[in-house]
Design a protein around this nucleic acid. Structure first.
Lengths: 336, 336
DNA sequence: CGAAAGTGTTGGAACGTTCCAACAAATCGT
DNA sequence: ACGATTTGTTGGAACGTTCCAACACTTTCG
């Protein structure tokens, strides 16, 4: 561990120039003579000089850093979104500060606070839990974009999400095209996204003249929730031939419920999930699903943020991305 | 968006005291009179003042921030480790800067560089890919701890990992206790962790007098790799009754290979994985596994780092944590 | 050939904090 | 009652950068 970290002054002294010139050179200005530049680079590497980001961001009044707060790292779909964000951010030469809310609004709030103290230039919220009031407060302070939660209500924030209603309709359309009629829905609980998916399901069923076949079973966005909902569906006296489950994780649970009853997927019953998490594609699961373009959502969120940073007065935008059907082995023709 | 962010001076002016006193008060010093404190708090909230972390860390020469670099966010076990790190870090009142290497040594290197520019006080490396040389360089600059890669070779770094040899032995012991003898191993490819697990497998087989039953099939730490390895194992003319697969993701692939052959788990063949990722516990998979205490590994890594920050001269430590057997539905008694 | 325009380079003033020595006022001990 | 301590408070100097106005020197050109 060397004594004290070398500063720009040390480099200047060693190279025999002024600190200002070193500053210029380090940032690759073209107003530096070739000789000076060479001497400076030489000195810098010799001292293994590393600019101090704190000092820089203080002087510059820009941190070149974006804050990303994610509801919960454990859900694999968030990880995929984050990857998208990071890629885009890197391209802009920015840096990312990533924190988790641990599914806890208090922690979430305080982490956001910390990010703001670090003078992040923008905030990406991935599936937050904050009350609208806090969001408004943030918005006054710092450009922000919200992912994966419909935020039509909140005026000032950019947001991006997939079209859950459309996606749900696609799931039903797919099952209908396979000849299914008694298509049940295992819901994702009481939250906006789940509601939209349920709504899409009902809409499409009705459009196909299957309104009388509509059947919703209460579930949740978890393995456990999917299992419960599917179990009730399967044990009912209605002979459902297909299940549209509110998300992929829940679909994994539903798969287990089917297996527990000695039934086969897709011969006895078809299953379609939602989200397109990589995991659902593993061969043991091979769940048909409505995929969100997760990485693209992350990337678009980041570029939206850069747009707003560039022009804080631009009107808030909402980007909707299209979900896409991925057919795997969990859905097949209706056999009754 | 308010005009300019209020600074400590603005607060001081509004409260009618000096900036020094505000600084004291904000950090909760007890040398501030009740009146002054009240006035300051009042002023601060009124202006919605937020201290500037860049300025603070410049003056303080401490960033109160730790850097965490993870190989790849997509692997769920890393997410669980990160959660552990974050929890511990939060308890110390520190902040975390999390970046990914995207499984790319170049990016990894440059991200670490950025973290160091931010004057992080320490670094947690979760499954890095850097050559030993870069690691040495880091070590000179900044306390660091390495997770989940045995680093006995590198003298100066603290590290923490589970005992892979022991874990592999536990897996075999478990299968033997269920009456299995022809226990094959699907490997994790050519890397240190995989080698250790393979070594533990061979050791335990030998100890149980089953040296002649040892059979290794080449796989990888992926779904695909597990599928391939298991497929070869199952198609061989040796009638294996159990498979120890190098990690959980690969075990998921192995499960698919078994299903493809119309065989049943665990009646026809037992499977044990390694890692203890939450996912393996989903009811559709229910894979018996050797679990690493992932969150604890993260937490211990962080506290190790705090120890070293507190005393940079302390000798480097290696902490080994014990893996634990979790029996689920993928392993059962031998029926032949 | 002298003014104008360009080329490199420089010192000093920011940026928003924390730390420190200094100090005034109140309280103490003898 | 008077120096010694304690209790609050203060201005100014760091911290390591970037920015800016000002500088010498060349070069250009009418």
């Amino acid at each position: 561990m060397a004594a004290n970290r070398p500063t720009i002054k040390d480099v200047a002294a060693l190279a025999g120039v002024s600190k200002s010139l070193v500053s210029l050179a380090m940032r690759g200005s073209d107003r530096v003579s070739a000789e000076s530049r060479a001497a400076i680079i030489e000195a810098a590497t010799q001292l293994s000089y590393r600019p101090n980001a704190a000092a820089r961001s203080l002087a510059d009044r820009r941190s070149h850093t974006l804050g990303v707060i994610v509801l919960d790292l454990l859900n694999p779909i968030y990880a995929e979104i984050i990857d998208g964000v990071q890629g885009e951010v890197r391209q802009h030469g920015y840096h990312t500060m990533l924190v988790t809310g641990n599914d806890n609004p208090i922690i979430e709030q305080s982490e956001v606070e910390k990010l703001l103290e670090f003078q992040v230039e923008g905030l990406v919220l991935i599936g937050h839990r904050m009350p609208a009031g806090s969001l408004d407060a943030i918005e006054g302070d710092c450009p922000a974009v919200v992912i994966s939660r419909a935020e039509r209500g909140i005026a000032g924030l950019d947001s991006i999400s997939n079209d859950d209603v459309l996606g749900a309709r696609m799931a039903v359309d797919h099952l209908v095209s396979l000849g299914h009629q008694s298509i049940a829905h295992v819901t994702g609980g009481i939250n906006e996204v789940a509601m939209l998916r349920k709504f899409g399901y009902e809409q499409s069923m009705t459009d196909h003249g299957l309104a009388d076949q509509i059947a919703c079973y209460e579930g949740a966005f978890t393995d456990e929730g999917g299992y419960r909902g599917a179990a009730v569906a399967l044990d009912s006296n209605r002979r459902h031939t297909a299940l549209f489950v509110a998300n992929d994780i829940a679909a994994v649970g539903a798969l287990a419920a089917v297996a527990d009853r000695g039934l086969n997927v897709p011969t006895d019953i078809s299953i379609v999930g939602y989200d397109g998490m990589a995991l659902a594609g593993l061969r043991s699961l091979s769940i048909s699903t409505i995929a969100q373009p997760l990485a693209r959502i992350g990337a678009e969120a980041a570029s939206l943020l850069f747009l707003r940073i560039g022009d804080p007065t631009r009107p808030p935008a909402h980007i909707g991305v299209e979900p896409r059907l991925i057919v795997r082995n969990s859905s097949g023709p209706c056999h009754t």
